[in-house]
């Protein structure tokens, strides 16, 4: 929907009434919709989260798109194209949701290419082999789905609705990734090695996609109070480890972590220590591919400027041409 007219709610009385209704809606686990009054911090936090999510989809297209031209069978080529295309679609659904909070997509794109906005740091790792395409589908999309399914119930209506559509479409992404690995695992020795190597490299980064440990996650608490986030980082991570620990057996391969185990006492899955220093480095833009991804996004946007402008100019001309006719009629 169109940007909300946030400014119409001025004055302390209206703010107080708005806050009260907002609190009630959150308390009864109802949904906030675009034109509702909402605390500025809620609007800001959501805009940041949804746009970051959208940027991740768009930047995330690149490492996989790099393999479209080299996909080793025509069926895999078609599947990969469809998957990368879905990611563009998901980015668009999310930008739409973020736009309802009042920030136009253009502004979000500008922030991204100016390096002011973040995207998921997972896409700053290089995608070196075909098996990486499998590992990304299985582990990276798998982790993303774990994160996203609870977001379908996020308190902000447009975000939740975008996530429902995305989760529905993403179910094939994880499966196709797992199938790539399954084919490799049942293939030649070289293919098996390729698959194991990919799992070794993507395992820890995919676990770190859930964000820092709970005691070191400053935004999580507020996000949970607002019913945007439903489970803590560690909770989701543990759930994910449990799933992939089982799934890897079907591949006949292993996770590169001897400490993965189910803790009978806590009822939770545990994993070995993760290198959070590396995570912070990559997050800070020092991942090996950061500059490359940003440059490509910037280039595509700038190279496309004349096309966008031409279409807008054409629309203007058509509208002007149509206008006198309408008046006459």
């Amino acid at each position: 929907m169109a940007a909300p007219a946030a400014t119409q709610y001025g004055g302390p009385d209206i703010d107080a009434a708005g806050q009260q209704l907002f609190d009630e809606l959150i308390a009864e686990d109802s949904r906030i919709e675009p034109r509702d009054w909402m605390p500025e911090a809620y609007r800001k936090s959501l805009t940041r989260q949804i746009s970051q999510h959208a940027h991740s989809e768009i930047i995330g297209m690149q490492p996989e798109a790099n393999w479209i031209t080299r996909a080793p069978s025509l069926k895999r080529k078609a599947i990969l194209m469809a998957k990368v295309q879905d990611e563009a679609g998901h980015g668009l659904y999310l930008y739409s949701a973020a736009e309802t909070l009042g920030t136009p997509r253009d502004k979000m794109t500008e922030d991204l290419i100016a390096g002011k906005a973040r995207y998921s740091s997972i896409f700053n790792y290089p995608v070196l082999t075909w098996a990486d395409i499998g590992a990304i589908g299985w582990l990276v999309d798998g982790a993303a789905i774990c994160n996203q399914v609870p977001l379908c119930r996020a308190s902000y209506g447009p975000y939740g609705r975008a996530m429902v559509r995305i989760c529905k479409e993403e179910s094939f992404h994880q499966r196709q990734g797992f199938e790539i690995l399954l084919e490799l695992a049942n293939g030649t020795q070289a293919q098996r090695d390729m698959a194991q190597d990919a799992i070794n490299r993507w395992y820890a980064p995919s676990l770190m996609m859930f964000g820092p440990p709970d005691d070191d996650s400053p935004n999580s608490k507020q996000s949970m109070a607002w019913n945007i986030k439903r489970f803590s980082n560690d909770e989701l991570r543990s759930r994910f480890v449990g799933m992939i620990a089982e799934q890897v057996k079907a591949l006949g391969l292993t996770l590169p972590d001897p400490d993965v185990r189910f803790n009978e006492d806590t009822g939770k899955w545990e994993h070995g220590p993760l290198d959070w220093e590396e995570f912070k480095e990559v997050l800070a833009g020092r991942g090996p591919c950061n500059a490359q991804r940003m440059e490509r996004r910037r280039e595509a946007h700038e190279d496309g400027a004349w096309v966008r402008e031409a279409a807008a100019a054409y629309a203007d001309k058509q509208a002007r041409r149509a206008a006198p006719a309408t008046e006459a009629a």
Binding site: Q62, N66, T69, P104, R105, D106, Q292, E295, R296, E299, E302, D303, A305, W306, R308, E309, A311, A312, A313, D316
Partner: peptide, 26 residues
């Protein structure tokens, strides 16, 4: 271009793109 693809590398007649767009976004 980055990415090292060989399928989109040549034949471009593109001069350097202009700075910012003059028109309203779509």
């Amino acid at each position: 271009m980055t990415g090292g693809s060989t399928t989109g590398d040549d034949g471009s007649t593109a001069p350097a793109p202009g700075p910012a767009e003059k028109r309203q976004p779509w």
